[in-house]
Each structure stands twice: as structure tokens, then as C-alpha cells.
């Protein structure tokens, strides 16, 4: 099939960017979206043009490295699918596609479709962990965890940190990301001692990063490649409120 691509080209983080049009022929329906771009890049290279920069690594939808907007939707039109797992069979001959990088103040563009998401690492560093040094752990079965709890935790822990939530959010908020980490650890017994501090610190850091606030639009859950739901944001709010007003800075019970 034949496609027309409009791709955001920006030489570096300070240069102005613009949309540039490319025609691609011979797209196979079995290609992944990124393989389609690989083929275009090989052609651009041989023509002496600058290939399009985009991030990707595992190409199996788990590392969270890839991601850009395809026709105004983070990771493209297929639900619960990263753009590396999006295959061209979901497009048809003659389609016109607009590719743009994640856009939020917290994710400055590095080049073309690649952005800097280190803000997400800083949010985790603010408190997204259990403070246990290597070697200090009790036997793994010493603390039973109800299966349902483990499942809720796992649903949230599935977050791949791709940043699609923030890219898609009308407010540019990464609450789904922050909420997922707070939920992952906050529902497990192992995460209880630091639950309050974690919620306060991670929310504060997300605010600091300019990853704004949730007004419950639900755009994030619609594009989350791992199907994480708004429930994690409610839980983040709950842990935050409890930490702030109920426990007033004391450790959670």
C-alpha cells in the first residue's frame, strides 16, 4: 500500500520544528509501524537526507521506549498497543498520517519524534520504591498477600512508563503514571510503611515537573498500552488525601 506521512521534523531541542510530507510506497501489511519508518529511513539515507529520529528498543511493547502521536492519538489507533506493535494491516492504501512527538512541557523534544522523559524517572526517585536494602528481606512467603490485592498491584505495575498518558492528556498530566506506581506499591503490605510519604512526595514531584493535574477526562486510559485505568488516579488521590489530612504526616497504619 501507499501512504502519505506528515512528520514533525525538528533538528534539536532548541531549533524550530515543522511538519514535512513524505510519500511511502510498497508498505506491507505485515510490517510494524516502526519497520515502515525504518524502510523510509533507509531510503532517506541513500538519498542523502537526514533520517527521522524516533526512539524504540524492545519492539515488543514492553520497554516503553517508543511512542509518538499517529493522527492525534498516542501510539496510534489500536487500543492497548504501543506503536512498535501497531501493524500496518490496520491502515489502508492512500491513508494520510500525521506523526508528532509527545508534547508536554515536561517532555522536551530531543529530535524529530524523540523526547526526553527523564521527568518520569525523577517522579519514581521521589518515592516510587520500598526502602529495603539488599539482604534484609524476610522469607518471601512470610507475609501472605491476598490474590486480589496482588492482582490490583500487578494491573498497575504493568505500566511501561512510555508517557502516552501525559502526551494524550488535555492537561499534559502524567497522573496515570504516578497513580500506577503509587497503586502498585500502595496496595501491597510491603508498601504500607512508606505509603503516606510516597504519595506526598511523588505527587509533589509530578507537580514540580509540570506534569499538571487530572481532571478526569479519561484520555489517558483510552491510550494506555497496558490498559491501566483511572482507578489508579483515584487511589493516588485517596492515598494523598489520607497522608495529607487524615494521618497528617504520620506513617500510614
Amino acid at each position: 500500500m501507499k501512504l502519505t506521512l506528515h512528520i514533525w521534523r525538528q533538528a534539536n531541542s532548541t531549533a524550530p520544528g515543522r511538519m514535512v510530507k513524505y510519500e511511502v510506497d510498497d508498505v506491507s501489511e505485515h510490517m510494524s509501524f516502526l519497520e515502515m519508518l525504518d524502510v523510509l529511513n533507509e531510503k532517506l539515507t541513500l538519498k542523502g537526507e537526514d533520517p527521522i529520529a524516533f526512539d524504540s528498543d524492545c519492539r515488543e511493547g514492553i520497554c516503553g521506549t517508543c511512542g509518538f502521536m499517529v493522527n492525534g492519538v498516542a501510539h496510534g489507533p489500536l487500543p492497548k498497543t504501543t506503536v512498535c506493535q501497531l501493524h500496518m494491516r490496520h491502515f489502508k492504501d492512500g491513508d494520510v498520517l500525521y506523526l508528532e512527538p509527545w508534547r508536554t512541557r515536561a517532555f522536551p523534544v530531543i529530535k524529530d519524534l524523540a523526547v526526553d522523559r527523564s521527568a518520569l524517572d525523577r517522579i519514581v526517585a521521589a518515592g516510587g520504591f520500598v526502602s529495603i536494602d539488599t539482604g534484609a528481606a524476610p522469607d518471601a512467603n512470610a507475609i501472605p498477600v491476598p490474590k486480589e490485592r496482588a492482582e490490583i498491584s500487578m494491573d498497575a505495575a504493568a505500566c511501561i512508563g512510555c508517557g502516552a498518558c501525559a502526551a494524550m492528556c488535555p492537561n499534559g498530566s502524567a497522573s496515570l503514571f504516578t497513580g500506577a506506581k503509587i497503586t502498585h506499591l500502595g496496595v501491597l503490605p510491603q508498601g504500607q510503611p512508606e505509603r503516606n510519604e510516597r504519595a506526598l512526595r511523588m505527587v509533589a514531584q509530578a507537580t514540580e515537573e509540570g506534569l499538571s493535574y487530572c481532571s478526569n477526562h479519561g484520555e489517558c486510559e483510552a491510550v494506555c498500552p497496558k490498559g491501566i485505568t483511572l482507578e489508579v488516579i483515584a487511589r493516588m488521590n485517596r492515598h494523598y488525601i489520607k497522608a495529607e489530612w487524615v494521618d497528617r504526616g504520620q506513617p500510614a497504619e
Binding site: 539488599t134 539482604g135 518471601a140
Partner: peptide
């Protein structure tokens, strides 16, 4: 170790 870290 992993369970203590919160690996679900």
C-alpha cells in the same frame, strides 16, 4: 528480596 521490594 524481590517480594520485599514489592514485586507482584
Amino acid at each position: 528480596q524481590c517480594v520485599a521490594q514489592g514485586v507482584p
